[in-house]
Amino acid sequence: MIQIENLTHVYPASRKTPARTAINSLTLTVEEGQFCILSGPNGSGKSTLFRILCGMSLPSAGTIRIAGHDLFKEPGKARAEMGVVFQSPAVDKHLTVGENLRLHADLYGLSASVYAERLAEAMAWTDLKDRLNDKVDTLSGGLARQVELAKALLTRPRLLLLDEPTTGLDPASRRNFIDALHKIQRERRMTVLMTSHIFSEAEDADRVAIMKAGNLLAFDSPQNLRGRLGREMVVLQSRGAVVLEGRIRADLHLKTRRHGDEIRLEETDNGASLPILEKLLATFRDDIDSIAIKQPALEDVFIHLTGLQKSDTSENGEVQ
């Protein structure tokens, strides 16, 4: 559904800033019907990729095909296949919910009868039924997001692009939004590409892509990504983490990774965590504020992958 090949985007230099490579020869294929999450630390190039995908900017090099159409040569055809939900609101706050949906239907050329049908469909899964005549700026954040999603789905796109669609929502509204999205995605076998920092949202995705500094670090299913770390790990917190890490390495000969005050022993074999934890407690009890055995979650994989070159993270255990 989406074929990205050797995509590179360089922001031109300006008077104050040098040229900056936001995407570095990225190649990625999203199959039809997949739910794909795109993640990465701030500044990794997600929004840049998103803007290129929805046809708002042109890259320095590379090609993208959307549903078989070359995005840069036939933008109109590619646009007709996709729905887009932006991170920032993209509706007219001074118009009512109904007027916004109607306008969107006009932009995509839906006939009146198709529109009526799709509107009824949207009313079935949203909580907007009684709010159609209310202006969008009177809605709560959660309802306003529902309007954005309902609007994008009105045209029954084969591909839905979402840029951090749940920022600013409370956990309950976020859950609602994601659940509705998943349900519709399955029913319609729609392809979804969504950027997100929230890993609970990525756990039920088909594919998770992790970017850093314009490079694609990983693109795999959540299970396989979790499998990249050992099965479990020991995580401990200490105020003297720097010193303690050195002592764990020297005295116990264990591989460690540190993120601020947190020390992780990631490559523990199955069942080995408990003895390690006991040994740590026996040796360094006074330096440890808290300690636990954790099953790796996607978030841990993310921290593992994206932390590799970070200055704040030491990798003594592996390097030496």
Binding site: R79, V91, K93
Partner: peptide
């Protein structure tokens, strides 16, 4: 500023 324009720009119009 309000973001409305971006949704018009990505529409196949």
């Amino acid at each position: 500023d309000a973001g409305f324009l971006q949704s018009v720009l990505v529409a196949p119009v």
